[in-house]
Amino acid sequence: SEEEEEEWRRAKERGEEIIILGILWKPNDEEAERRIKEALRRV
């Protein structure tokens, strides 16, 4: 969703871990980033 995407962007800017759509994303975690982008597209 729009607000999840916004939340994720803010976490990326701050360089902090975030759990979004049930996926743990850490800074520079390209695999998780790809999965999150896929999940955001499906929503």
Score class of each variant (00 low, 15 high):
19 I>M: 12
36 I>S: 00
17 E>F: 06
4 E>T: 13
24 L>S: 09
29 D>A: 04
9 R>K: 12
22 G>K: 00
31 E>N: 08
39 A>R: 08
5 E>P: 04
43 V>N: 10
4 E>I: 15
14 R>Q: 10
17 E>K: 09
26 K>Y: 07
14 R>T: 09
35 R>A: 13
22 G>N: 01
23 I>W: 00
33 E>V: 04
43 V>E: 13
38 E>W: 00
27 P>D: 06
42 R>H: 10
26 K>P: 05
4 E>S: 13
32 A>K: 01
23 I>L: 02
43 V>M: 14
37 K>A: 07
7 E>F: 15
36 I>K: 00
11 A>Q: 03
28 N>S: 07
12 K>L: 12
16 E>I: 13
35 R>I: 07
6 E>I: 04
41 R>T: 11
35 R>L: 13
10 R>L: 07
19 I>D: 02
4 E>F: 15
24 L>R: 10
36 I>F: 06
14 R>M: 10
39 A>I: 09
15 G>K: 07
12 K>S: 07
1 S>W: 15
6 E>Y: 08
18 I>F: 11
19 I>H: 05
28 N>I: 00
15 G>M: 07
2 E>W: 14
11 A>K: 02
10 R>G: 11
32 A>R: 03
22 G>Y: 07
42 R>I: 12
19 I>E: 12
42 R>Y: 07
31 E>F: 06
17 E>N: 10
14 R>L: 11
22 G>W: 03
12 K>G: 05
20 I>R: 01
27 P>S: 00
11 A>H: 05
3 E>S: 15
13 E>F: 04
12 K>F: 09
1 S>E: 12
14 R>C: 15
40 L>D: 02
7 E>R: 15
4 E>K: 08
5 E>N: 07
2 E>Q: 14
17 E>R: 06
34 R>Y: 04
21 L>E: 06
14 R>A: 13
22 G>E: 06
21 L>D: 03
17 E>C: 12
41 R>K: 12
12 K>V: 12
28 N>F: 13
27 P>V: 01
40 L>V: 08
8 W>G: 05
33 E>N: 06
25 W>D: 02
30 E>R: 08
27 P>H: 00
28 N>M: 09
38 E>F: 00
35 R>Y: 03
6 E>R: 03
3 E>V: 14
3 E>R: 14
14 R>K: 13
33 E>K: 02
21 L>M: 13
7 E>G: 07
3 E>P: 14
38 E>S: 03
12 K>I: 13
18 I>H: 04
5 E>W: 10
9 R>T: 11
43 V>I: 15
34 R>M: 14
20 I>V: 09
7 E>Q: 14
1 S>F: 15
33 E>I: 05
32 A>E: 04
18 I>S: 04
19 I>Q: 07
4 E>Q: 11
39 A>N: 02
24 L>A: 06
19 I>F: 10
34 R>I: 10
40 L>P: 02
34 R>C: 14
36 I>Y: 02
18 I>Y: 09
32 A>G: 03
22 G>Q: 02
10 R>N: 12
6 E>H: 05
6 E>V: 02
39 A>F: 03
42 R>T: 13
38 E>H: 00
30 E>H: 10
12 K>Q: 11
25 W>S: 01
37 K>H: 09
26 K>R: 12
11 A>S: 06
34 R>T: 09
37 K>M: 09
25 W>Q: 01
13 E>I: 09
29 D>P: 01
28 N>P: 03
24 L>E: 07
2 E>F: 15
20 I>E: 01
36 I>L: 05
23 I>Q: 02
36 I>P: 00
34 R>D: 10
4 E>V: 15
35 R>G: 05
33 E>D: 11
15 G>N: 09
5 E>R: 01
29 D>V: 02
16 E>D: 11
30 E>I: 13
2 E>M: 14
8 W>I: 13
21 L>Q: 10
19 I>Y: 13
43 V>S: 13
24 L>H: 08
16 E>Y: 07
23 I>E: 05
22 G>R: 00
37 K>N: 14
14 R>D: 08
10 R>Q: 13
42 R>F: 07
20 I>Y: 04
32 A>V: 05
23 I>G: 02
12 K>R: 11
32 A>P: 00
4 E>N: 09
5 E>G: 02
14 R>H: 07
1 S>V: 15
18 I>L: 05
22 G>S: 00
5 E>L: 09
10 R>V: 10
21 L>I: 06
30 E>F: 12
1 S>Q: 12
19 I>P: 04
33 E>P: 00
35 R>M: 13
22 G>M: 11
33 E>H: 03
11 A>I: 15
36 I>T: 02
22 G>V: 09
9 R>A: 11
21 L>N: 05
9 R>L: 15
19 I>L: 13
12 K>H: 11
11 A>T: 03
18 I>Q: 04
23 I>Y: 00
25 W>A: 03
35 R>W: 03
34 R>S: 11
38 E>T: 01
8 W>S: 06
15 G>Y: 05
9 R>G: 07
40 L>T: 02
36 I>G: 03
41 R>H: 12
37 K>S: 08
6 E>Q: 04
27 P>I: 01
29 D>Q: 02
35 R>P: 00
21 L>G: 07
20 I>M: 04
18 I>E: 01
9 R>V: 12
35 R>V: 07
29 D>M: 02
30 E>A: 09
4 E>W: 15
6 E>S: 02
4 E>H: 13
38 E>R: 01
26 K>A: 11
9 R>D: 11
31 E>D: 11
38 E>I: 07
26 K>D: 06
36 I>Q: 00
31 E>H: 07
12 K>N: 05
25 W>I: 04
42 R>W: 04
32 A>N: 02
41 R>S: 12
17 E>V: 11
7 E>V: 06
41 R>Q: 12
16 E>N: 08
36 I>M: 05
31 E>V: 10
3 E>I: 14
28 N>D: 13
7 E>I: 10
36 I>H: 01
2 E>V: 14
1 S>P: 13
10 R>H: 09
41 R>A: 14
17 E>H: 08
